[in-house]
């Protein structure tokens, strides 16, 4: 049974995914940001569940997470905010967060809640594929959730094949050895890496993230991959210009 993510990946276009931190800049902005992003023509949305210690993230996402937690965001609050989201939003929604808050909520209960709301997939940077495969895959799949794994320029071919065989949506390709939001532009080395992965003909399409911040980097990335993800640049936009002008940001990328 195909879910919204798998159907979206079949569309004949390059896909834009936007990440934002739930509860930022204000606690109750979550639903409006999702609706505005869909209206602006975004293909996927990654809803960030804030964590006190986001190891894989650079300063922009760290600060938005700290602020969101100060605003009162919790797993419970986020689920409450999202409970009617499927009445108005139809594009794929992915929750991105660190493993500890999910573990405290209870993995089974967390997956069940995601499924009830209509969340399609999860990205959990600190849940390694091996642990997922051994302990959690059956639970995620029973609730129809797609789990998305990261690969990096240092990931071995053997491990990429393993991740590909464990995935059922797309592979999140980290553009370089870095935390989020920490570089600009793609050099030859990165393009060679994009091409190397494209040439592997994996079962799952790839979507590139980290370092995508404008039309140029979006276009470079999507020459080699099915789509690209923007996170820190969008959060900076919201920080500087507020939540009123979301379509302006999106139009600059995909007009």
């Amino acid at each position: 049974m195909a879910n919204r993510i798998q159907n979206k990946l079949l569309e004949d276009k390059k896909l834009l995914s936007i990440y934002f931190t739930a509860g930022y800049p204000h606690l109750n902005d979550t639903v409006n940001i999702i609706k505005d992003l869909e209206q602006a023509g975004v293909d996927f949305i990654e809803i960030g569940l804030p964590f006190s210690d986001p190891l894989a993230d650079g300063p922009t996402i760290q600060e938005s997470s700290t602020q969101a937690l100060k605003n009162g965001m919790t797993t419970e609050v986020l689920f409450e905010q999202l409970k009617d989201i499927r009445k108005s939003v139809s594009i794929p929604l992915i929750l991105m967060g660190y493993f500890n808050p999910m573990l405290q909520y209870g993995i089974e209960k967390f997956c069940q809640k995601c499924s009830e709301i209509g969340i399609d997939g999860l990205i959990i940077p600190d849940l390694p594929v091996d642990v997922y495969h051994k302990q959690y895959q059956a639970i995620f799949e029973a609730h129809g959730l797609t789990n998305i794994f990261l690969i990096t320029p240092q990931t071995s071919e053997e491990r990429i094949r393993y991740i590909d065989s464990t995935s059922n949506g797309f592979i999140y390709m980290v553009s370089s050895a870095s935390t989020t939001g920490s570089q600009s532009g793609f050099g030859e080395e990165q393009q060679a890496y994009f091409k190397r992965i494209a040439d592997m003909n994996l079962n799952n399409p790839q979507i590139i993230g980290f370092g995508i911040n404008n039309k140029e980097t979006f276009q470079t990335a999507t020459q080699f991959a099915k789509g690209a993800i923007i996170g820190s640049a969008f959060i900076k936009h919201v920080t500087e210009k507020g939540t009123q002008n979301i379509s302006e940001f999106v139009n600059k990328i995909i007009d």
């Binding site: 894989a56 940077p125 849940l127 990261l150 990931t155 071995s156 050895a177």
Partner: peptide, 11 residues
Amino acid sequence: GGAYIPEMLYP
């Protein structure tokens, strides 16, 4: 114990 690390740290 274990190693609950982002893929970027795996290598």
